[in-house]
């Protein structure tokens, strides 16, 4: 389950970050986000991570950007890192390389 540490206002993602929990997680996140300008999300507990979970994470980042809040994502678990590696992303969910040059050559 997600927990909110009142001292630091950290959002701890649940073990299951999949299609089965994303709806609930989004709701709790939105509640959490309303309370703070500095979004801190930890992923150390995540053992199940699928496309819906990935999409939720990307939503959180986009949301932070759109609402001009800072966002720190910390302590990634192995399943999360695996997905980021597969998609060629950094641990802060940013993209490693730019394909534009290669696309132009195709």
């Amino acid at each position: 389950m997600n927990t909110e540490s009142s001292a630091e206002m950290v959002f701890n993602m649940a073990e299951d970050l999949t299609i089965y929990s994303v709806a609930e997680l989004k709701d709790s996140f939105m509640e959490y986000a309303e309370k703070t300008q500095e979004l801190k999300v930890t992923l150390e507990q995540v053992t199940e991570f699928d496309s819906a979970g990935f999409q939720l994470m990307m939503f959180i980042i986009n949301f932070a950007n759109a609402t001009e809040k800072t966002c720190v994502i910390k302590r990634l678990s192995k399943p999360v890192i695996d997905v980021l590696m597969l998609l060629g992303m950094n641990e802060d969910f940013s993209f490693k390389k730019n394909l534009a040059s290669q696309e132009a050559s195709l």
Partner: peptide, 8 residues
């Protein structure tokens, strides 16, 4: 990026 995002 807001409410209208349906995570499912």
């Amino acid at each position: 990026f807001a409410e209208e995002m349906d995570p499912e």
